[in-house]
Amino acid sequence: MTEVEVEVDVAVEEDAALVRLAAGRGLKGQLAFEKLVDRHQHWLVRLLIHLLGSQSDAEDVAQEAFIRAFLAIEDCGDGSRFRGWLRVIARRLAFNHRRDARTRAQYEERSGVLAPRSVAPISGQVEGRDLLKQVLGELAYPYREIMVLRFVEELPIKEIARVLEIGESAAKMRLSRARAEFQRTYEKKGGSRGDTGRA
């Protein structure tokens, strides 16, 4: 077992202990859950920033995800999969948040109140990280979602399928299509296979 794998195991055991305490409720349970917030807030907000493209939206959804998780902590089982369970909650909330934002934008457009639009950067000015974020932002949302889970979160297919609540073969097919769409858009915008995303 590698050093990293040992660290992961220890983290999982600690999560499990905290989840058990949190499920016991009371003040002790609340303090245990607050420790879970400290341990998981950074990766959760980062994931949501990549899914939603906005830090403030990401923080709002992350906060909501923690509250939902707190209220339903008994459903987390033995707690060893807390991170994965929280990721599923956050992914559902992000999906709903994005849908609501789109509905709002469509309503505003129909009623004449124009939502501010992002200005497309002039070709050639976008490089590295910005290019990558721009390409991700242009992908259809299910593709963006699976690309982030695979290449930022580095989840195996089995875990991606669990988060997206689809079968493994459906996840493989979606990832394959997302890769093709990503490659097409990335190359169209001047990116190439030799890039590392660094400017």
Binding site: Q41, H42, Q63, R129, F151, V152, D195, T196
Partner: peptide
């Protein structure tokens, strides 16, 4: 490899985020 830059990106969340959630 292309996504490496996003994996290594340090995301600065609001200083009071944890306190707000709690």
């Amino acid at each position: 490899s292309v996504f490496e830059v996003l994996r290594e990106e340090v995301v600065a969340i609001a200083a009071d985020f944890g306190d707000r959630v709690k």
